[in-house]
Amino acid sequence: MKRLFDYLNGYLPNGISESDFETVKSYFTHKRLRKKQYFLQEGDVCKYYGFILSGAMRQYTVDEKGTEFIVQLFIENWWVGDRESYTTSSPSVYNIDAWEDTELLLITRADVLELIKRCPAFAEIVRIMDERNSIANLKRLTSSISAGAEKRYADFVVTYPNFLGRFPQHVIASFLGITKDTLSRIKRQLLEKE
């Protein structure tokens, strides 16, 4: 729970009080996933959001040909879940699985809403996280529709440096919306420039 406490503390100028954190942590449950184990499968409703204590995960769709398209990657100190399914209780169009053995803290939507009412500090943290998430999603969308492959990879390296050693090239390529061969070419060109 220390990882969650430290994470939440980073969102408020004066941090979160011990008593507020005791309230917050009482709403979470602990879960372990083995590598390749599903957190969520397409067609199921996302009943929990998870805070990753250790491990790595990926969110993806699969087309009719069986090709996977990575939508999001997650590591420690990231929240994982399908926000649309979680919020609307609708079936998810995504799969989320553990890329590595993973430990999470889980919370239901009902518990988040209750915590927001009970704990003003948590409500403020959620508001700030939502703002940052919205900004990050807009940046990623803008990059994916307007930037070339080289720029997308350069932005990825700056924005997500901790992902480089955790996910293989084909996963990173899919996340960037490019082929593995294109990513290999870009990396080779960058090495030649050094």
Rank of each mutant, 00 (worst) to 15 (best):
T88N: 13
W99K: 14
L113Y: 08
S85A: 12
K65T: 12
I75A: 13
A98H: 07
E100N: 10
S85E: 12
Y60S: 02
W99Q: 15
E103W: 05
Q59T: 05
T61V: 07
E100Q: 14
V71C: 13
N77S: 10
D111V: 05
D111C: 06
D101H: 11
R58V: 01
R109W: 09
E68H: 11
G66D: 03
T108D: 13
N77I: 00
W79D: 04
V71S: 15
T108I: 11
W99V: 15
T61R: 07
W99M: 15
P91Q: 04
D63S: 01
T88H: 14
I70M: 08
L73S: 07
T88W: 09
R109F: 10
T88P: 01
N77M: 01
Y86T: 02
W99E: 15
T108H: 14
Y94G: 11
I107V: 06
N95V: 04
A98E: 03
G66A: 04
I96Q: 05
G81Y: 02
N77L: 00
T61A: 03
V62F: 11
V93I: 13
S92I: 09
I107S: 00
I70Q: 06
A56V: 03
V62T: 15
E114F: 08
A110D: 15
Y86G: 03
T61N: 08
I96V: 10
V93D: 11
W99D: 15
N95D: 10
T102H: 06
W78M: 06
Q59N: 02
L113P: 00
E76H: 10
A56L: 02
D111G: 05
V112K: 13
T108S: 15
V112M: 14
V93W: 05
S89E: 12
L106I: 11
E100G: 02
I75Y: 10
E84Q: 13
E76F: 09
I75G: 10
D63M: 00
V71K: 15
A98L: 04
E84W: 08
N77K: 11
T87Y: 00
T67F: 01
N95M: 08
F74Y: 14
T61S: 07
N95W: 14
L105A: 03
E64K: 10
E84P: 00
D97C: 08
S89D: 14
L104I: 13
V80S: 08
L106R: 15
A56Q: 02
T61L: 05
N95K: 04
I70A: 09
T88R: 14
V80P: 06
G55S: 03
T87S: 09
W99A: 15
D97L: 09
E100I: 05
T88E: 12
W78G: 00
S90F: 01
W79F: 13
E84T: 14
L104E: 05
Y94P: 08
G81T: 01
R58M: 04
E64C: 07
S90M: 06
S89Y: 09
V80W: 05
T102Q: 06
E84C: 08
L105Q: 07
W78P: 00
T88M: 13
G81N: 03
E68Y: 07
D97M: 09
N77T: 07
L105P: 02
L104D: 05
G66P: 02
E68I: 08
S89N: 14
E103I: 11
D111H: 12
D97T: 09
R109M: 04
W78K: 01
S92F: 12
V62E: 13
